[in-house]
Structures are given as structure tokens and as C-alpha cells.
Design a protein around this nucleic acid. Structure first.
Lengths: 125, 125
DNA sequence: CTAGTTGCAAAGCATTTGCCTGTGG
DNA sequence: CCACAGGCAAATGCTTTGCAACTAG
């Protein structure tokens, strides 16, 4: 991250203002409201740089496009929820106990991911 | 699944004999030992059919190629462990309590996935 | 100025599809 | 027989890269 260009600002704003993780295509669409000439290749390059700089985090739901979020300093350990109907992804605070009880003998655990599926408030209404 | 072709047999054998989930490319390589003319497109088509017939299951680790396993009737609810060193994926029996405590108000949960990361016995030695 | 960025187009790579030939039952 | 399968090649969709033009500092 060296230069402060309008493209980069538009991309960061798009992610930050959405309130939920966005895919590269969604970011492109949103950021074009500010910079119409914005190119998808630039979105990918910028996301890569922002990721290396630790300014964005990636959420990978199996079988789906990666989604990007701004990194917040106060960010805690959290997990994600995916709505089966609208496909939206949401963050959930907290975690569960007892994950180590799943480990067979000889395995050492250094990290984990939990993904819940179901219906979000809007879709279950 | 209608016809019983040598290609399909080779693909099923390759998956069954490996003992671990295989990617399409790995399946191609293994099955070509039996049917050298086997084509990658056939592997994809066959995996799709076997999947729809419930004969194979897919394991999707975020950011990695999908891996396929034979489905066993006695198969129970389980989760997976991925070794950070060798990249191997292993199944773990059991589950944890309290996943519902993660849900924010208004969310309804219908399913979940848990993925543990760390070192397998061979790599932690 | 000038190195980092961008837009565009082309290249990559995994996966899918069209089409015609081959074959299992 | 003949509808399902397979081989091959082209098409697709997402992501990356080469390169010349542009611009922030």
C-alpha cells in the first residue's frame, strides 16, 4: 500500500459501507458508483495488496466466491453464518467449548473454523 | 447411474482404494492406471452423477480443490481436520454442543460445518 | 520526475458443454 | 438396437498477468 488513489478509496469504501462481506464482483459494482472506469483487474490487485497489508480479511465459504471484509483492530475471534435462501453471509461473535474433544490421538490443533447454515432473519420471516 | 462402464468402475475404485478424499486430478491419475484413455471430462461427469446418486460425498476445504469420497451407509455426522504441513484431510467422528448459542436473534440454524486445522500425527512427529 | 497504479486485453486454470462416436444391456 | 457414456475440443467463468499510459507524492 503505497499510493492513495481514488480507486483504492472507492474499493475500501465499498467494503466498509456494505456491512457484510463482499465478493470481487460485488465490490466492482459498488465501487463503480464512485469510479465508473474501475476495472475488475484493479479490484483483484487492490484486494491482494490490502490483504497482504492486513487491511482486509477473506471469508471463504466452500464452493462460493471469496468475500472480503475490512479488518478492525478490535476484531475478535468469530465465525460465520450463511443463509440458505439469500446466500448472504453474516458474522457471529463467540465460540464453542470442547473442539479438542473431536481430535483423534496424535493430532495437534492450531486453529479452527465453524460455519453455520440456515435462514437469516429477513428470509425466515 | 445407468451403465456399468470400465471408466466408472476405475473411478470408483480409485476413490475407494485411496482411503482419503481425492481431487478430480488425483482421481484421473489413479484411474488411468486401469483405463489409460480416461478423460478428465469423464471424471467430472462421473463424479457429478455419482454425487447425485449419493454414492460419493464432496469435501470442500476453503480455497482448495474439492475432494471426493465414497459414501458409506454407516456414515455418521462428522467433521474434518486439515494438516497445515502435508495438506492432508482426515475425518473426525463426533460433534460439539452449544453451536446454537452462537446464533444472533432471529437466525434459524439448519446445519453446520466444523473444520479443525493443525498437524496430523505423521507431521507432528 | 518516476515508481507505483491503472485499464485493457490476453493468458491461465479448473470445470463444463457440444458433438459425434462407441458400447452396454 | 439405441439411449446412455465417453473422448475430444471448444467454451466458460473466475482470477492473474503483460504492457503501455497515467498519476500521486
Amino acid at each position: 500500500m503505497q499510493r492513495h488513489t481514488k480507486q483504492r478509496v472507492a474499493i475500501e469504501s465499498a467494503i466498509g459501507e456494505s456491512g457484510r462481506p463482499l465478493s470481487p464482483a460485488e465490490i466492482l459494482q459498488a465501487a463503480r458508483a464512485t469510479v465508473p472506469s474501475l476495472n475488475l483487474a484493479t479490484v483483484y490487485r487492490t484486494l491482494k495488496r490490502l490483504g497482504e497489508a492486513g487491511e482486509v480479511t477473506v471469508i471463504q465459504i466452500p464452493g462460493e466466491a471469496p468475500r472480503y471484509n475490512l479488518y478492525h483492530e478490535e476484531e475478535r475471534h468469530h465465525h460465520h453464518f450463511r443463509c440458505n435462501k439469500c446466500g448472504g453471509v453474516f458474522c457471529m461473535e463467540g465460540c464453542v467449548e470442547g473442539l479438542k474433544t473431536l481430535l483423534p490421538d496424535g493430532f495437534r490443533m492450531t486453529g479452527h473454523d465453524i460455519l453455520l447454515y440456515g435462514l437469516c432473519p429477513a428470509c425466515s420471516a
